[in-house]
């Protein structure tokens, strides 16, 4: 607190002039060091640690600190981990696509509204972000579960005779739950990219005789799509690292890469291999973010 207030007052020329410039420089450097240094220390150091770990190995339950690529070779050589990795990538891209489609529809409908209602509904659609993620999974399990509300509804409506297990503990459940949990993350960026479409362009399209459908196809969609895809990629990154949702609603099909990483820790004590798997995951996340960055740069040039 002291630092911030001093820095702020230092900007005032009347006071700054009275002080030795090198002290001000010192203070600024200290402030900068704190602002950049602390996050760097707390984020980069742990990352570097597991990167280093991934090149070590374990022998008889002991970590051997000599450089080796064995863990990465293992990842490529063991079909289990390769398979789970591609399976998880596939799952994440399906979740991203679903979020893109539904997120777009919702964001579009909200965007079309006028005045206060628009932002009120936008707020409503992102409120789930404030909820604990585990609570949301449990909530979804209560809806989809054997004695869940969905089954209760279907049984009471006379559509099925006994509760069905079709909605829980399978891939469908994973996709529904993940799509619901990550939808708000897609809605926000999609809404923002729709907001950036200038109203004058819509008016011009209408003036030139474009029907609403044509305006949407030829003006709104092309302008808002890059931003929306970036939103979907963001969802994909989140889904890629999420192993809890598949574990909790996916039943015997809920095994994902995150859980494979998890399994190398604890009693297994295979931190180096776990770290290598984590590096693989991190690299794919970085790759996705790079793609997203390229898309948004491309869109901006246009």
């Amino acid at each position: 607190m002291t630092d911030l207030s001093l820095a702020a007052s230092g900007a005032d020329p009347a006071i700054a002039g009275a002080r030795a410039p090198h002290r001000r420089w010192l203070r600024r450097t200290a402030l900068r060091l704190a602002v950049y240094g602390v996050p760097a220390l707390l984020i980069l150091v742990p990352l570097a640690t597991f990167l280093v770990y991934s090149f070590w190995t374990t022998v008889d339950g002991r970590v051997v600190q000599s450089f080796t690529l064995a863990n990465y070779v293992d990842f490529l050589a063991k079909p289990v981990y390769r398979g789970v990795f591609t399976g998880t990538l596939w799952l994440a891209s399906i979740v991203a696509t679903t979020s893109l489609i539904f997120g777009y529809i919702i964001a579009y409908l909200v965007w079309r509204l006028e005045g206060r209602l628009r932002y009120f509904l936008l707020l409503l659609s992102v409120i789930p972000l404030a909820m604990n993620y585990i609570v949301k999974i449990y909530a979804m399990r209560n809806i989809l579960g054997y004695n869940g509300s969905l089954n209760w509804l279907l049984v009471h409506a006379g559509l099925i005779e006994a509760p069905s297990k079709l909605f829980i503990f399978n891939q469908t459940a994973v996709m529904i739950t993940m799509a619901v949990i990550y939808l708000p993350y897609a809605i926000l960026p999609i809404f923002l990219s729709l907001e950036r479409v200038s109203p004058s362009l819509l008016a011009a399209s209408a003036d030139l005789g474009g029907r609403p459908g044509q305006t949407f196809r030829n003006v709104v969609l092309p302008l808002s799509l890059p931003g929306s895809i970036v939103g979907a990629l963001f969802v994909m990154v989140l889904a890629l690292g999420d192993y809890l949702t598949p574990q909790m609603v996916g039943g015997n099909q809920g095994f994902t890469f995150g859980r494979a990483i998890w399994s190398q820790f604890g009693m297994a004590f295979n931190w180096p291999f776990g770290a290598a798997l984590a590096v693989v995951l991190l690299l794919s996340v970085v790759l996705i973010i790079l793609v997203a960055a390229a898309i948004s740069r491309h869109a901006r040039v246009k």
Partner: peptide, 24 residues
């Protein structure tokens, strides 16, 4: 056995919660 198992639960409470939901 996997064909018979509905799900592999993750912890004490998770197992109890799934069992209590019914169908187990």
């Amino acid at each position: 056995q996997k064909r018979y198992v509905s799900t592999y639960y993750a912890g004490f409470d998770d197992g109890v919660s799934i069992f209590a939901q019914g169908g187990v």
